[in-house]
Simulated assay, not measured.
Amino acid sequence: MRQKTKTIIAIALPIQVILVQWIGSYPQLVEDYYSNGLYVYISRFLRILFGWIPFSFGDIIYTILTILAIRFIYKNWRTIIKKPLLLLKDIMVVFSIVFFAFHILWGMNYHRQPITWKLGIEREYTIEELVSFTRFIVAQTNQYQEELTGDTISPVHIPYTKKEIFVKTNEAYRHFAKQYPDFTYDHLSLKSSIYSVPLTFMGYGGYLNPFTNEAQVNGVTPKFRLPTVSCHEVGHQVGYSAEGATNFIGFLVASDSDDSYFKYSAYNHALGYCLTDLFYKDEERYNEIVATINMGVKENFNELRDFWKKYENPMEPLFKSVFNTFLKVNNQKEGIKSYNGVVGLMINHRKQQMGHLSNL
């Protein structure tokens, strides 16, 4: 690539940043013309293109690019030392291209209307509503744990393979789309990341590759969690970037599924968020509610705790900090805390559903 071309591409980076921020200040415009327009066709095309490949093509691309970058630095280190500004220009060129591709292929979804607007619900809730909802979630979790194990003391073990869970995730979305057509999902592209172990050390359950539109799941995660993790990552594929929103979508889709294992996974996941929230707001009632949870459910929580504890490392807070900054830069003011926003969404969605039933 000629230096003149590189200079033009590098100069385009700050222009792109300004342009994205300007367009992002009009969320309805993004909603209508990108999220429900251009992105629908881009994502479908990418899922058709890469979805049939049995392994993560995006992970392979990342690996190759990393090797090429190391090779470039190794072969050109003398020139880099003598002319560091040339390397800076090359870095700016790469950032400019990546920034453009990221926002065209998926990233503009960070600036769409929030899911509260889509479903007509709020996020605020009282402590009493949290207590009531947590009790409801405990009852549902206990019910499906007992149904699946035949007792109250055995943890749930999902008998499906990861591939079967991915297929059932697709089926769950088809079932959910009957009630919410805006969440129609086709051309499955859901895979176990080849970097599942590194993802675990970083503390992540999965991610969406924005350049290939492959939903990547941490394949070593305890299997009882995989249904909601899979539904969460597909939530990113259907165009929602906010983590609280995709946690909520994952819960709705999995709990609406015809499969009891998916329902248990959804309610167990939701219970974890509710209990954490309640612990900080009313520890006394938290303890009262915990005492009503089946031992089998608690065993699954212990399984999850032991899993993450095994991979604890000094670098995890750094990875979380970087991701927190990434989220804040991309229009999620709460950063990594946005994951916890699912509690208010779940509470208010149930209030809305109960209101609809009372009006029938």
Rank of each mutant, 00 (worst) to 15 (best):
D90S: 14
D282N: 15
N359D: 15
K118M: 13
S43W: 05
K320C: 03
T66I: 14
V220A: 05
N330K: 04
I73T: 10
L360Y: 07
L19T: 15
E214G: 08
K89T: 08
Q140Y: 00
H269T: 14
T292P: 00
K333Q: 09
S196L: 07
N340D: 14
Q113W: 06
L19Y: 00
Y33R: 14
Y286P: 00
Y273F: 11
S265D: 02
S255A: 09
F95Y: 15
H232E: 00
L105Q: 12
L278T: 08
G107C: 09
K337Y: 00
T184C: 12
R225W: 12
F211Y: 03
S35H: 07
A172D: 03
R123K: 12
S189L: 05
R71N: 15
N209W: 09
I48F: 06
N324F: 01
A69K: 03
D259Y: 06
W117P: 01
K6A: 01
E303S: 12
N302L: 15
I91W: 11
L46T: 05
T161A: 04
D182Q: 05
N313I: 10
V297N: 03
L357H: 14
E334V: 04
G120M: 10
N170Y: 14
V322G: 07
R112S: 12
K223M: 09
A10C: 08
D256L: 03
F45I: 09
W22A: 14
L46V: 08
P227F: 05
E128F: 15
Q143H: 15
S193H: 07
G250S: 05
Y311L: 04
